[in-house]
Design a protein around this nucleic acid. Structure first.
Length: 190
DNA sequence: AGGAAGATCTACT
DNA sequence: GTAGATCTTCCTA
């Protein structure tokens, strides 16, 4: 149960997206530990990917996409914070969006944060950030570094992974870049 | 300084 | 299944 390192993230985004499924996202707030199993992810690229923030080239807003693998990239869409991890090599834009978690611990706290029923705590990208209290404060931090507030650890588990087209993007690419755990109740959409 | 976009969510029918 | 709310950031003027 070790924290995932740079090597894990320095690979192709769709590979990282696939391998992040089943891993555990941990958030510590004071004495409270909130955690969940990652059950849905999406990969985003650069100039070849019209749905990506990096599509139009380097700019101040999306610059983290070009940063080191393992960096946390957070931004707001429609009043929701979305959590991404930068992947690939330094200077080549790509990232993985964490889209859904299966709650493991800190469920009391998640219920307070979300004011929603159990099944709707973390079954979407904007929901899980709210449940875990993740906001822009983590933007540009490094998730591979020792940091008692947010981390992703390994969890050796065999999973049935399926793929589909990405959700909610206005222009998707031909390739299927969304990955999720088959038959998991916390996946945002079938 | 203002407008529009955006990888969403919720409530409603 | 769809409409309306949401809010931060960037871009243009």
């Amino acid at each position: 149960m070790n924290r995932l390192n740079d090597l894990f993230y320095s690979r192709d985004a769709s590979m990282v997206a696939t391998d992040l499924l089943g891993k555990i996202l941990i958030r510590k707030i004071g004495d409270t530990v909130i955690s969940g199993k990652i059950v849905e992810t999406e990969a985003y690229y650069g100039s070849q990917d019209p749905a990506s923030r990096a599509y139009k080239g380097y700019n101040n807003f999306a610059k983290l996409m070009w940063d080191r693998p393992g960096k946390v990239f957070i931004y707001m869409v429609h009043a929701n914070w979305l959590l991404n991890i930068i992947t690939g090599e330094l200077g080549e834009p790509s990232a993985v969006l964490i889209r859904a978690l299966e709650p493991i611990s800190g469920i009391d706290k998640m219920l307070i944060n979300r004011k929603m029923p159990f099944k709707q705590l973390t079954n979407g990208p904007g929901k899980l950030t709210q449940a875990l209290g993740i906001t822009k404060i983590f933007n540009d931090t490094d998730i591979t570094k020792i940091n008692n507030k947010i981390s992703i650890i390994d969890n050796h588990e065999k999973l049935n992974v399926v793929s589909s087209h990405r959700i909610g993007v206005s222009k998707d690419v031909e390739r299927k870049l969304r990955f999720y755990v088959y038959d998991n109740n916390f996946v945002s959409k079938k």
